[in-house]
Nucleic acid binder design. Structure first.
Length: 153
DNA sequence: GCCAACGTTGGC
DNA sequence: GCCAACGTTGGC
């Protein structure tokens, strides 16, 4: 079992939006970065742990615990000319972009970015690395454990 | 709104 | 294959 941190802009899909969806599950649309896509395609397994992270907002941070709820499948928004995620270069018979379903298990307090940065046990967390813009990053088991502890404490 | 950092594009 | 220009991300 692997662990992941997945960024979402709360203006688009917040943890509350995801909780309100059927089965608290949302398709993770809009990933348009090859490295992030490859994580979903090659490394994610159903049941993997997910830290639901709010980005590009007033208080960025981890706001929920979720799980990977499907294997990777084509992101339909790449074929929708009205979608901001439309990719005219992608073909139906060779989809360029994939997504997975993510099921929120629990909303948590906001474990904020400043808190994460200040935590001596989380210095190597990938999402904290300088200049990191990846919307999906792997989380080491020891970091997952630490973060769950901080959320309970 | 600013801008550092990074990914992608395209001319050569 | 190089790399400058450009676009995007995302914290501040």
């Amino acid at each position: 079992m692997n662990y992941w941190l997945m960024k979402s802009e709360p203006d688009e899909v917040s943890v509350d939006d995801a909780l309100a969806a059927p089965r608290s599950t949302v398709p993770w649309t809009g990933v348009r970065n090859y490295q992030a896509r490859n994580f979903m395609r090659d490394a994610m397994k159903v049941g993997d742990g997910v830290l639901f992270y709010h980005s590009s907002c007033a208080e960025p941070g981890i706001v929920g615990i979720a799980r990977v709820a499907s294997t990777a499948y084509p992101d339909p928004t790449q074929f929708d000319p009205k979608s901001p995620y439309f990719d005219p270069a992608s073909r139906q018979d060779a989809p360029r972009w994939l997504l997975v379903d993510v099921q929120v298990q629990k909303k948590t307090r906001n474990l904020t970015l400043p808190e994460l940065r200040a935590d001596p046990d989380l210095q190597d967390l990938v999402v904290l690395k300088r200049g990191n813009r990846l919307s999906i990053t792997p989380v080491e088991p020891r970091h997952w454990k630490t973060i769950l502890q901080r959320l309970q404490g």
